[in-house]
């Protein structure tokens, strides 16, 4: 599979990473190199196989553990917001959100 500049721009937008025009060409060639590598997967016959999401699923059955419905997290606003680039009155500030 070959990545074209338009694909790359679309993916960069999807991933919210600004890519300058100067970065575009080298990035495209690097990603195409990576895709050359991962395209080796296409030749493998995997018919009838379940995708393996959790590695231990190969040997044993692991269901998800559930938590009791209890309030265990108390207000830590000050500590939790200490790293905020911009905040005021307990709110994180961002450029205006448009809807």
């Amino acid at each position: 599979m070959e990545l074209h500049p338009d694909d790359l721009k679309r993916i960069a937008r999807l991933a919210r990473i600004a890519v300058s025009d100067a970065e575009l060409a080298p990035l495209q060639s690097q990603l195409n190199g990576i895709f050359g590598l991962i395209d080796e997967l296409q030749a493998v016959d995997t018919k009838g196989l379940e995708p393996l999401a959790h590695p231990l699923d190969v040997v044993q059955h692991l269901p998800q553990r559930l938590r009791d419905d209890k309030i265990t997290e108390l207000d830590q606003r000050e500590a939790n917001m200490a790293n905020a680039p911009a905040s005021e009155n307990g709110l994180f500030l961002v450029p205006k959100v448009l809807e």
């Binding site: 990545l3 990035l27 990603l31 991962i38 997967l41 995997t46 995708p51």
Partner: peptide
């Protein structure tokens, strides 16, 4: 970017799911 690409519409099965199946192998 590679990750967003392999998960994106139309590629998810061919890349991500295929990789998880190969992972099982």
């Amino acid at each position: 970017l590679t990750g967003a690409w392999v998960l994106s519409h139309g590629y998810y099965d061919a890349y991500y799911l295929q990789a998880q199946r190969v992972r099982r192998l």
